Amino acid sequence: MYRLIRSNIERVVNDEHVRDSLIKQGYELIEDPENTNKNLSDLTVEGLKELAKEKGIEGISKMKKEELIEVLKGGQ
């Protein structure tokens, strides 16, 4: 899992190619795989939803942060 940030926008991606593309767009890597503690509570709701999408989890659009964390923990 790669966490990147640009201005006030945080993105969470698993794919190296997507990570590289975002870096070229001005995002900065704030977490790398070696340092991944997967502390989901530190992510924003947007970041959690992005992670859930990447994992193929459906029905996330109206979930609250706590619900997203629970679903993601169950999927790990």
Rank of each mutant, 00 (worst) to 15 (best):
I23N: 00
G26Q: 10
E16I: 13
V13Y: 02
H17R: 14
V12E: 04
D42H: 14
K24A: 10
L29E: 07
G26M: 12
N8I: 11
S7Y: 10
D15G: 03
P33I: 03
N14G: 15
K24H: 11
S7N: 13
Q25L: 15
D32F: 12
S41N: 12
D42P: 00
R19P: 00
E10T: 11
D15I: 08
N37K: 15
G26E: 04
K38V: 03
L22P: 00
E10N: 01
V13I: 07
E34H: 12
L22S: 02
I30Q: 10
T36V: 12
N37W: 10
V18H: 01
N14K: 12
L43V: 02
L43Q: 01
V12Q: 00
I9E: 04
L29F: 07
L43H: 08
E34S: 11
K38E: 05
P33R: 11
H17Q: 11
V13T: 13
P33Q: 03
R19E: 02
E28Q: 13
I9V: 15
L40A: 05
H17N: 08
E34Y: 13
I23R: 03
V12H: 03
S7T: 06
N35V: 01
I5E: 03
E10L: 13
L4W: 02
N8C: 05
E34M: 07
S7L: 12
L4K: 01
Q25E: 15
L43I: 00
I23T: 04
E16D: 13
N35D: 05
H17M: 10
D42E: 14
S7K: 15
S21C: 06
G26C: 06
N35A: 14
Q25S: 08
L4E: 01
E31M: 14
E10C: 07
I5L: 08
P33M: 03
R6G: 00
N8L: 12
V18N: 01
R19C: 05
D32H: 12
N8T: 10
L4F: 07
D20H: 04
I5Q: 04
E34R: 11
L29Q: 07
K24M: 11
R19H: 03
S41R: 14
R11F: 09
V12G: 03
S41Y: 08
V12L: 06
S41Q: 09
L22H: 02
R11Q: 06
S21R: 12
N8R: 13
D32R: 15
E16K: 11
K38W: 13
I23F: 05
N39C: 08
L29G: 02
Y27H: 04
V13F: 02
D20W: 04
N35K: 14
I9L: 07
R19A: 00
H17W: 09
E28W: 11
I23E: 04
N39G: 06
N37I: 02
E34L: 13
E16Q: 07
Q25N: 10
N14C: 08
I30A: 09
Q25R: 13
